[in-house]
Design a protein around this nucleic acid. Structure first.
Lengths: 123, 123
DNA sequence: GGCCTGTGTTGATGGTTGTCAAATCAATGT
DNA sequence: ACATTGATTTGACAACCATCAACACAGGCC
């Protein structure tokens, strides 16, 4: 478990493998963040989110996206919306006959900040 | 403001469903972007990327992450690194005995920009 | 050449996921 | 109460994925 190749006397190979002390993400955070990224890891869900976030009123009716340019059935759309919802990226609300979805901007920004963090883009 | 229930008589259901004209992402872009997001959709890969991007020299030796805090076997680490590499998020290079990985910042920033785009975070 | 160590690949396996048809729930109107 | 339309759930199935053990490859050292 001690890794690398030991090498006692000469410091040569020791040039590799300076310990990193487990920087940044711990396992717990990684699980939550990965759940959100995984929800984005499907073309249809990405397009759904795009439609939701680019809606003029900040929300969109499900009836605007079912049976439209997405070549999947209604239940499949509903399934993908559920994945996005349970990941915390969108929130849905029923008003009368129709259901409206809007983005959860705080979580979306959290992901953006992670990919844009100094630790990720610094030299 | 625009849609929702209204409901006149003949045009009844047409009150909902104002077409959106397929805003923002097209199907082609969505596939490429989803591939990158999917690569981030695993806790281990997320922690791997975190280690890589937070390395002091901008790159990290694989020997620094195998057999370490990740409770998975060596081949599994190698598999996840391959997924990240083929998604275009990291790049690897062999120098002598060891292999070094560094982040592909352009693509990481592209994802961050997408989640931070006006269409996504605007009021 | 052989031996060792660091990485990556292959094959197999159990679990997860995307998809649809059919059934179900919710709200409205007849 | 009944029928209708919007949206979700359930059940089933094929495809994919994460994981490991075993093996193969690469480079340094004897």
């Amino acid at each position: 478990m001690s890794k690398q190749l030991v090498v006692l006397d000469t410091a040569d190979q020791a040039a590799c493998c300076t310990p990193i002390t487990e920087a940044s993400l711990d396992a717990g955070q990684a699980v939550d963040l990965a759940r959100m990224f995984k929800a984005l890891g499907d073309p249809i869900r990405l397009r759904l989110l795009s439609r939701i976030t680019s809606a003029p009123d900040g929300e969109i009716c499900v009836c605007d996206i079912t049976g439209d340019a997405f070549d999947v059935s209604g239940p499949t759309i509903s399934h993908h919306l559920k994945v996005l919802r349970e990941a915390g990226l969108i929130a849905g609300e029923r008003r009368g006959t129709w259901v409206y979805y809007r983005p959860v901007e705080a979580n979306l920004r959290q992901l953006a900040a992670l990919l844009d963090a100094p630790a990720l883009v610094s030299a």
